[in-house]
Amino acid sequence: MAVRVQEADFDVGAELAALTAGNHKVGGLGVFIGVVRDTAGDAAVAGMTLEHYPGMTERQLAAIEAEAVARWPIEASLIVHRVGRLAPGENIVLVACASAHRQAALDATAFLIDWLKTKAPFWKLEETADGESWVDARESDDAAAARWRR
């Protein structure tokens, strides 16, 4: 179980190989990779800058991961989230869960990214032709997180 916040890109293949290395109880991995889009509605996006709350971010990510471990039989999990300036096409976030069976791996992965989006203290500043603007939180993200509430 690990969480990391970093400016550098991540190598998905290397991260996933390291996540399950030597653990042959793993029967499948769920993986989500968030990537910078080049559009926001009708506007072209030149890039974005990710800001976060050092300390609280890691605590929130660890708490979210612990909740996933409590709910599903997870063999290994990983959250890597980038900060700083990112261009369209660049990776933002990697979430991966390994489990004996696919349903737990896929559900836990969806849970992690849904909860991360509404709880982890990151903010996106988008660059368009109109200048810079902070991305608004989306109700659809709240709804996605709410389906995991119990």
Binding site: G55, M56, I113, L116, K119, P121, W123
Partner: peptide, 25 residues
């Protein structure tokens, strides 16, 4: 570093943060 509601008590030793709804991921 824990989410609270506005009625949360505060004291001199606390670290208090103010921010908009989060938009990571």
């Amino acid at each position: 570093q824990e989410y609270v509601e506005p009625d949360q008590p505060v004291s001199a030793d606390d670290e208090v943060a103010f921010f908009p709804p989060v938009t990571g991921g």
